[in-house]
Design a protein around this nucleic acid. Structure first.
Lengths: 201, 201
DNA sequence: TCAATTTATTGAACGTCGCTCATAATGTCA
DNA sequence: TGACATTATGAGCGACGTTCAATAAATTGA
């Protein structure tokens, strides 16, 4: 019994040390593009050596993926929270998602990196697929609750795609401030929610 | 007069030498992810030294951008060709675009890289913005011809976004073959064209 | 024609990258 | 306390993008 407890404690300790590294990476992502963050920077920020980082992650990619998966889990959690109070409209859900992406561009950059890149280990691939499926489930649920009865799964795919596309197309709008981009992307989200709710253009 | 002609000839010669490098890069992109293509590989493939590449491009990023801009120009040209014969439906245009992306994933990867990355020189940024605007113009034209009179510009934005999102969401569909992915993404394109044409879901 | 001059090409060398691994430090327990 | 297991360390490795002095090729003018 105590043997088991000790094992758990060990694991928790290990997890918390891993979290130190993860948080250090997050702090760096807040100030610069994740693609340009180096192991040496993370190790300095976390106050550990380079080698220690490789004790917790097999490589940088898996570390980045861990950050991404955490964010994705956060989004699905937020979706659930929103839905638990009162069934949200499709528009509200779309706006929420785009708003999140505006506040967490790193998440979106990572999504595009991992979804298009493909240099992942089988284990990592599975974790990525799973979390994306979870996200999709939430969107399908919202579609169902809004009265989309036929082809709800593929419609969820289309809606999810459409939302994701907003950021790739407009995150870099020439000469616009962050606030203007937020407004523009939210407007597009509303429009897409509209057409998916069957509104005429 | 002859002075002018000579200048032009010089420029053409220089351009053709640059094209050798560009084509070498393209051949490499056909077999591997563009992010993993190195200067050394390109120089070997092109049969020139590393230094020569830097004689034609200030850095690798600008070389990649050149490839991207060429592809983008090709797409707008194809849009124009399609439209010149007979006014295409929105669905046809969307299917054409997604079909092109399926055949040219490197183009899409580069688009996401440049649109989300942002480490471009002012000159490069301007070229990127310009070609994207050209693409948008073609989409807006299609929307207008299909009867979308109000808010045609922002609707074009939304449609373009939605189409781009298809690939980021499904280019990596777990355990699917290229052919299955093509079918799925084309189906999504059709569906999105549908909702933007005002069809009920 | 041929030296002078301009232009293009070359690849060794530089600093930095992700990552490894022999070594040192720390923790565990009889 | 001493033997053993675990974790942390950072110098070193090969490869990266990029630079630049040296070299080769092309152009010019007399």
């Amino acid at each position: 019994m105590t043997k088991k407890k000790l094992e758990e404690l060990k694991q928790m300790e290990r997890d918390s040390r891993r979290k130190i590294i993860l948080d250090a990476a997050l702090e760096l992502f807040a100030v610069k593009d994740f693609r340009s963050v180096t192991v040496r920077e993370i190790s300095r920020q976390a106050g550990v050596s380079i080698g220690t980082i490789y004790n917790y992650y097999p490589n940088l990619t898996e570390l980045f993926l861990d950050v991404f998966l955490d964010s994705a889990a956060e989004i699905t959690q937020m979706f659930d929270n929103i839905s638990s109070k009162k069934t949200p409209t499709l528009e509200q859900l779309c706006e929420f998602y785009i708003s999140y992406l505006n506040d967490n561009m790193t998440f979106y950059q990572m999504m595009s990196h991992f979804m298009l890149g493909g240099e992942l280990s089988p284990d990592a691939t599975q974790k990525l697929d799973e979390i994306m499926r979870e996200l999709m489930n939430r969107i399908e649920t919202a579609l169902l609750s809004v009265g989309c009865k036929t082809n709800s799964r593929i419609t969820a795919h289309a809606l999810f795609s459409a939302l994701n596309g907003i950021m790739i197309s407009y995150a870099r709008y020439p000469g616009k401030t962050d606030e203007e981009i937020r407004r523009h992307t939210l407007r597009l989200a509303k429009m897409i929610a509209g057409v998916f709710s069957g509104k005429k253009l």
